[in-house]
């Protein structure tokens, strides 16, 4: 086993222990909690918060991927080509909007709860995926495309069998960026009453309980790092398969 895999396994173990057996860490966190105060977050189970957090991110990311890739396919076909410059402008401007601001602006429009968080995650998640999908689909090697036409593949066959598989690694990079942003924004979503792991950190901040802050921070941080790493590994595997 390589050092990298050993580290991954160790971090995964730490994460599972933090989520499933938080009591094990009581001696470690006690010095950080206010004297006599609670040490381990117990207002709701860390497992259910984690599942709700990951569920929000997964739902938003899947929806964003479907919509963004469909739109990118549309604007890179001849029929949608007139929308290409506009869509580039929108992604450029949209990505300068801070994710927190998108979340905050979703509240006046949609109210509190998981709904506005989901919408904000979805809207913001569209941009990196859309941008990468446009880049990937409009910079395919011309020789390969010519060969696909020469083989007699029709438009749909070219799209499904050649263009999308070739574009996949770059699209996946976009999805990874989008998921990482969504994990972070979902954490802040607990300030608008979405059920996420941010709740633990916020509770710690409000009651001056650093033990809570550290617990929440460690769990969210480990989730983000491990998910990012897993997706990067998947990309490397797919890219190697394409190239090889």
């Amino acid at each position: 086993m390589t050092a990298g895999n050993l580290l991954r396994l160790g971090l995964l173990g730490l994460l599972l222990a933090l989520v499933l057996r938080p009591d094990w860490f009581t001696p470690l966190f006690t010095p950080l909690a206010p004297a006599g105060g609670p040490v381990i977050y117990a207002r709701s189970s860390l497992l259910s918060l984690s599942l709700s957090h990951l569920g929000l991110v997964a739902l938003a990311s899947v929806a964003a991927t479907l919509v963004a890739v469909t739109l990118a396919i549309f604007v890179t076909r001849p029929v949608g080509a007139s929308f290409l410059p506009l869509s580039r402008t929108i992604t450029n401007i949209g990505q300068t909007f801070p994710p927190v601001a998108v979340l905050a602006l979703a509240v006046p429009a949609l109210g509190f709860g998981s709904g506005p968080t989901l919408v904000a995650l979805f809207l913001y998640g569209l941009l990196p995926i859309f941008e990468n999908a446009i880049t990937a689909l409009s910079t395919l090697p011309p020789a390969t495309m010519e060969a696909a036409r020469g083989m007699g593949l029709n438009r749909w066959q070219r799209l499904w069998r050649v263009e999308l598989p070739l574009a996949l690694p770059v699209i996946l990079t976009g999805i990874r960026l989008s998921v990482v942003i969504a994990l972070g924004t979902a954490t802040i979503g607990s300030t608008v009453a979405a059920r996420t792991l941010g709740e633990v950190i916020i509770a710690g901040l409000l009651t001056n309980n650093t033990a809570y802050v550290l617990q929440g921070g460690l769990i969210v941080g480990l989730f983000a790092v491990l998910i990012y790493d897993a997706m990067a590994q998947l990309e490397r595997y797919l890219a190697a398969r394409m190239g090889g």
Binding site: T187, V213, A224, V225
Partner: peptide, 20 residues
């Protein structure tokens, strides 16, 4: 690049015990 993946609220949270 791993530092960048840590969600902002978690990062700010982790800084609190460290800096205090």
């Amino acid at each position: 690049s791993f530092l960048q993946t840590i969600p902002s609220l978690a990062m700010f949270g982790l800084m609190i015990p460290l800096l205090s």
